[in-house]
């Protein structure tokens, strides 16, 4: 929709865009800048923009605090959680979208679990995983406390409603006629799902995956209660920089930058895809 453009209006528009971006980017810029500051340039007034950059903070975070350990845990937990959420969620969403299972009631039920305040169930979760972890199945699937499986299950549970919600509208946007003709060509229902529906819904599934991954990556409360050391994630790991000598701002900034970086790269790579996906799902909501 190209409209007649007037120069002053355009200047105003890009000026506004610049301001908006400044607001959203500055806090992260400041965090990254802090990560390269020597300790003597961080808690000083007035704030310092010029300094001799140092990699000490990164050294402290990566070598002394072994921060990649937390990155590894977070990666394992969020990627597996996201895969499960997307898989299970897609199946369920397809069922809701095409077969109207439960005539909206089951969908409402699943969505309503998203309203539960996590804090209310965190102790029951703690006790459940403590007991499950002692069983044979629990041991095999690493479902005990301070094990990856416990967090994965929690994240699947808490991200499933959102994922299903998004996915239902994506599936509804796929014309039924395509599936029909595939069925008439002799494909089974599952084959239709695999060869026709899912590929068509890929942008929508990608969007769902991105959001799920972001939510898992950034989750704090469950990670903090259900892990101790071996399965701790980055958000919990950052806490180990809150020391008796105060918050180690430089290393925290370095750790935060390291932990945000994979998400940024991922989001940037997926960006084009995401906008397509969001557009796709948004046509009719």
């Amino acid at each position: 929709m190209q409209r007649k453009t007037s120069i002053p209006l355009e200047v105003l528009r890009y000026g506004a865009i610049f301001l908006v971006l400044g607001f959203f980017v500055f806090p992260i810029f400041w965090m990254v800048l802090t990560s390269f500051k020597p300790e003597s340039a961080i808690m000083v007034s007035p704030p310092r923009f010029l300094f001799t950059p140092t990699l000490d903070n990164y050294y402290h975070a990566i070598v002394d605090k072994n921060f990649f350990f937390y990155i590894k845990n977070t990666l394992i937990i969020s990627v597996i959680s996201t895969a499960i959420v997307v898989f299970i969620g897609s199946l369920a969403a397809y069922s809701f979208a095409r077969y109207n299972v439960g005539d909206g009631h089951i969908l409402f039920f699943i969505l309503s679990t998203k309203m539960m305040p996590a804090i209310a169930v965190i102790l029951p979760y703690f006790l459940i995983f403590r007991d499950v972890g002692k069983t044979a199945v629990g041991k095999a699937l690493h479902l005990g406390l301070d094990q990856h499986g416990a967090l994965i299950v929690s994240y699947v549970m808490f991200n499933l409603p959102f994922a299903i919600w998004l996915l239902v509208s994506f599936f509804q946007d796929i014309p039924r006629s395509l599936e029909h003709s595939a069925r008439l060509d002799g494909l089974s229902r599952l084959q239709v799902l695999r060869k026709v529906t899912f590929p068509l819904a890929a942008p929508g599934i990608a969007v769902t995956a991105v959001f799920t991954l972001i939510f898992c990556w950034n989750e704090f409360l469950f990670a903090y209660i259900l892990t101790r050391k071996l399965a701790s994630t980055v958000t919990v790991g950052v806490e180990s920089f809150f020391t008796l000598q105060g918050i180690l701002w430089g290393p925290v900034a370095a750790a935060a930058t390291i932990s945000v970086a994979p998400m940024l790269v991922f989001v940037l790579v997926m960006q084009r895809y995401m906008v397509r996906g969001l557009t796709f799902g948004a046509v009719r909501g």
């Binding site: 908006v20 971006l21 959203f24 980017v25 806090p27 992260i28 400041w30 965090m31 802090t34 972001i214 990556w217 950034n218 989750e219 704090f220 980055v234 958000t235 950052v238 918050i247 925290v252 900034a253 935060a256 932990s259 945000v260 998400m263 940024l264 991922f266 989001v267 940037l268 960006q271």
Partner: peptide, 15 residues
């Protein structure tokens, strides 16, 4: 614009 979304409140809140 996506940047803030990709970060954790527990971490960026600190900053």
């Amino acid at each position: 614009l996506i940047l803030p979304l990709a970060t954790s409140a527990a971490v960026t809140g600190l900053f």
